[in-house]
Each structure stands twice: as C-alpha cells, then as structure tokens.
Nucleic acid binder design. Structure first.
Lengths: 144, 144
DNA sequence: TACAATTTTATAATGATTATAAATAAAAAT
DNA sequence: ATTTTTATTTATAATCATTATAAAATTGTA
C-alpha cells in the first residue's frame, strides 16, 4: 500500500468514507511518522479543525484499525500508538524519552503471518526497548 | 535461570528480600504460567494471604520487573501481563478470549538483544495476535 | 423539502495504574 | 530486651486513558 497517496484516495481504498475529520487525521499520520498517541493527534489537529473532539479521534482511529488502514501499536503500557505504515517492520521504544522509531527487519520470516499449531495468526509485532542515542549519552532516568 | 527453584532462593538470586507476600506471588507465577494480570494474581492470592492489598501486588511486580526476575508483557492494551519465564520465546494472544500462550522461536536471531544503529537495546518482544483453536472454531466475536 | 442514515460531539462512566501517607513488620543499635 | 531506624505493606484517594451514551450536526436520498 502506497502511503504517499492523497488522503481521500487512501481512505477510499480501505472502504472508509472520507469526511473532513478523517482526512485531517490520515493526512497527519502520513506527514508525521512519529507513531503518535491519540493525544498527539488531537493536540496537533484541534487548531486547524476547531470543532474536533477527542472522542472523534478515538472513534476514527478505531475505524482505521478495524479497516486495516492503520496499525495499532501496543508497546508502551501508557498509550496505544498508531502507525500508518502497515508494511513489515519492527519498532524500538526508548525507555527514557518514550519515542518510537521504525526498525527494518532483515529476515522477515518470524514476522510472516502464518499458521502456528492450531492458531490463526492475523498480526505479528516485533519490538525492542532500550535507550536511544540521545538519552543514552545524557544518562537520563528510565521508566520501562 | 531455572524456574523450578524454590521461590525464596529465586528471589534472593535477583537480590530481592523474600517476604511472605513476595514469596506467595513468585510461587503463583511459577505454578500458573498463564501470563496473569495484576487482577489475576490478586484474586488468586487474597484468600491464602488475607491481608494482601492490590497495591502490594502492583508494587511487588514493579520490583520484580526492575530486578529482572519477571518480564512485563505489553501485548494487550487493556492490562499488562507478567511472565516469570525470561528465556527467549514469543507470545500469542487470542483476540477473542484474550488468553496468551508461549510460542517457541525457531531462529532467535531477531530477538537477540544487540546493538542496532545508535540504540542500546535492553529487551526484545515478539508477539502474534489472532484466534486460538477454540475461538476460531466457535467463531466468537473479536476485539483486537 | 423532508426523511433516514451516518458522523461528530460533549459529557459522564469505567477501570487500570500511580501517589500518598499511615500502619505494620523487620533489622540494627543501644 | 527496648528503642530507633529502615523497609514493607496497606488503605485511600487521585490520575488518566479509554469507552459508553445520547444528543447534535451533517450527509445522502426520495
């Protein structure tokens, strides 16, 4: 799935009707590949979409995830993060600044959605935790 | 690290002073390899340790995780799960019944704690989501 | 225009987790 | 053994992400 597509078409390709709010949200996800929280998205958009409500952000992301247009990342125990890049890659979260980065996976075999035992697997997630360059240098306090 | 060890020695080997409550909790984790939540642990133990408080379960698990005696699993967005098996393995969570199982990893390379770019990696987690045999047969509703 | 369906919104409710500070227990010192 | 100090446990309240609910606004359609 190409991400540098116009937001409207992107939504439609996943069977999602493109409303003003939905377009603003995908657009934000396309341009800000920081694995944002609901809060991040809301804070960034309520200026340009003044009527926006946080409930709408929750509802919209739930819809996007259900339709497969966005991936929900459960890595941080504090907040769910969202990733519009649904292609095969891993993540790294810094225990100190809590930012999340994409990590390419060399051998993607382990992440291939496949049959294991009697389990029907629909998603695979690989993530690392540790300290980013900045926080490791500064020796800033942990919280993982 | 051997898990079939007596709880007291296990705690001591991680530099944790073995109190009554702490022993009850590791013992529970050793005998019930179901990746329990705080709630699960509390519900199972407050009968045999009547003074037990949920705050203690939170505090204790936090200590165990900090000392490396137990692994915190962030897979389910609802609750953190705990695993006393800190050896290299993956997990599977059923989107319907929310149970979590251990999955062996064939090639553990991806999960090896190592240096990537400028990142200092301290933990790796691989997990799958989908439907277990029981829920897939019964076609029970999702919630992932 | 009027009707129906969808989407958005504000508000309240839920529920996991953390903060706080008092109570208890254990260890050390006298 | 008794006091003093430290560590641990506990009850309670606070926080904060997420969900539920129902009303309001918007869109599509006859």
């Amino acid at each position: 799935m190409i991400i540098n597509k116009n937001p409207r078409e992107y939504l439609q390709s996943y069977g999602i009707k493109p409303s003003l709010q939905r377009i603003a949200i995908v657009e934000y996800l396309m341009k800000n590949r920081i694995h944002p929280t609901i809060e991040d998205i809301y804070n960034a958009l309520y200026i340009q979409v003044p009527t926006l409500s946080k409930t709408t952000v929750y509802n919209t992301l739930k819809l996007f995830v259900e339709q497969g247009a966005v991936l929900a990342l459960v890595i941080d125990d504090k907040n769910v993060r969202f990733d519009i890049d649904t292609s095969c890659h891993a993540h790294f979260q810094c225990c100190s600044c809590h930012r999340i980065w994409d990590i390419p996976v060399g051998n993607a075999d382990l992440l291939q959605v496949r049959q294991i035992d009697d389990l029907l697997i629909t998603e695979s997630h690989l993530y690392y935790k540790g300290y980013c360059k900045h926080c490791n240098n500064k020796m800033v306090g942990s919280s993982c």
